[in-house]
Design a binder for these strands. Structure first.
Ligand SMILES: [Mn+2]
Ligand SMILES: [Mn+2]
Ligand SMILES: [Mn+2]
Ligand SMILES: [Mn+2]
Lengths: 217, 217
DNA sequence: CTTATTTTTTAGATTAGACTAAAAATATTT
DNA sequence: AAATATTTTTAGTCTAATCTAAAAAATAAG
């Protein structure tokens, strides 16, 4: 059985590896875990000993097959619990992360699968992130980022890349949420900011924001 | 913030203190926690330092006011989660304890209170144990134990004192569950076994079983 | 009221996970 | 290519929670 610390590391190594697809550095792990590089090194050595990561000194690490399997279970639980909190208990999408961070460590496969059934097998969590099925498989979603749309194209918001509190609260403020249909009105080449039309409201969002919204067209 | 270990100790000291109402011994704590007496001593010293138990060397310990407040929160969470598992996820009453043992440590008052609301403010958990309210208060229930009933008296099963797996599974087997109306047919003075009538079925239960069933008449 | 038994505490060791400071390896500049 | 800067690892320390073995206190027997 893995400790909570080990599980948290596995999950973050998975998240970091997803984006870049290459080896993740000790420093990036330490940053994500809000700890020191030396602590990350210690944990990488332990996880490597357990066969959960492939790690070469000074080069970096990636999840092994076995490690990925473990990570997917944790991601699945995290996203199912977030869905429960929003759909059943009435939390908003910017309030659930920290609680799910704890709930993801509850050990009971039966519980996870029954929760899944109770929620009627959701495919995505409240942030639009896909939920791995009971075998750890994720159904590939063919969304793109808002920043890739051209003027006059439109699409539906299906998720956020950054699910931080501050970003979600900002989206609440400017009234963007999952399911919205957004049309590109103008793109400013100078700073990549984008003027969009959403619910008959025109607003301008920064290029950074546009890069953190997943769209399906 | 308390560690999971500290929380588990507090909860067990509470449970032991409830029954006897007097000081609980180091050994009894160690037994409940499935650990060694020396470990229990260490923890008692730590909890005493934090003002959570009143402890005198070689004599025993009891929860302080502050400790009891903390313990009630954990008991509340444990019983609410058990109720959730049975009422919403379809677990049976003998399957929920170990999972609730983990869930009781999730830190979020909002979550606890919303779960309570979602379950429509249950007064008792699946084993008939009272659920403390959001202020940690338990509504006193005036149940008695089955062993106190006389021949021909009847009453409704409202809870179990022993909520162990084996006892619950035994009750499943002999078809006794919460809500049943039970009538005393005969009491055998030799060994205190009791013949009862339940759902038009006559069965004989041991005195030990009779002492572990709460009845309301 | 001594002696023996049981219970409880202390002393010392171990493990996981974190930290700081220093050393080693790698990457970036001149 | 040498010097400098950055990243990563190692060495050593710390705390929480456990354990075993031994000492101390309390309880029970003779
Ligand atoms: Mn976590
Ligand atoms: Mn999420
Ligand atoms: Mn517990
Ligand atoms: Mn219970």
């Amino acid at each position: 059985m893995l400790s909570q610390a080990e599980e948290n590391y596995l999950k973050e190594i998975y998240a970091l590896g997803e984006e870049t697809q290459k080896l993740v550095s000790t420093n990036s792990i330490a940053k994500k875990m809000r700890t020191k590089a030396s602590s990350a090194t210690d944990m990488l050595q332990k996880l490597a000993n357990k066969g959960l990561v492939d790690y070469t000194k000074y080069k970096g690490a990636r999840l092994s097959k076995k490690g990925e399997t473990r990570a997917m279970v944790i991601v699945r639980k995290h996203r199912l619990w977030e869905t429960f909190l929003v759909d059943k208990l009435g939390f908003s999408w910017d309030e659930v992360h920290d609680i799910a961070e704890q709930l993801e460590h509850i050990q009971s496969k039966t519980l996870t699968d029954r929760l899944d059934a109770f929620l009627e097998y959701p495919s995505h969590d409240p942030h639009g992130h896909p939920i791995p099925n009971t075998n750890g498989k994720i159904v590939a979603s063919e969304s793109i980022i808002l920043a890739e749309l051209k003027v006059d194209q439109e699409g539906i918001v299906v998720g956020v890349k950054d699910a931080s509190d501050s970003f979600l609260k900002y989206l609440n403020k400017i009234n963007i949420t999952i399911g919205d249909t957004i049309k590109i009105v103008e793109i400013e080449p100078f700073d990549n900011s984008v003027t969009i039309d959403n619910n008959a409201q025109q607003i301008t969002i920064s290029g950074n924001v546009a890069k953190n919204l997943y769209i399906k067209s």
